[in-house]
């Protein structure tokens, strides 16, 4: 490592950018429109009919592009749950 590196603080902007992206993906869901809330609830309700939902294993995110919003629902399904359904 160069000696100058030791004195130079690591740049903070990339950290800010990553923290924001993660935070906003979640905040957009909880503060989103009525339609987003409805979609989220109904989709999760359908899934809950078949798999026991554990909050820790469900990730709801919303990505935004200039023209559309993308609602992303990630559900971890345990292997044995799949067997039960089969």
């Amino acid at each position: 490592m160069s000696i100058f590196r030791l004195f130079r603080k690591q740049s903070s902007a990339p950290v800010a950018r990553e923290r924001l992206q993660l935070l906003l993906a979640h905040e957009r869901v909880s503060t989103g429109s009525d339609l987003v809330q409805l979609l989220r609830e109904e989709i999760l309700a359908v899934i809950a009919k078949h798999v026991e939902l554990d909050n820790e294993r469900v990730q709801v995110k919303m990505d935004r592009t200039e023209n559309v919003s993308i609602l992303e629902i990630d559900v971890e399904i345990p292997r044995d749950a799949v067997k039960q359904a089969a």
Binding site: A13, Q21, T65
Partner: peptide, 20 residues
Amino acid sequence: RAERGDMLKVEDVLEILSIP
């Protein structure tokens, strides 16, 4: 400051907010 990496870059803000 943006060049030093201590301020969000224009591209970062544009990408996060996605408006022109």
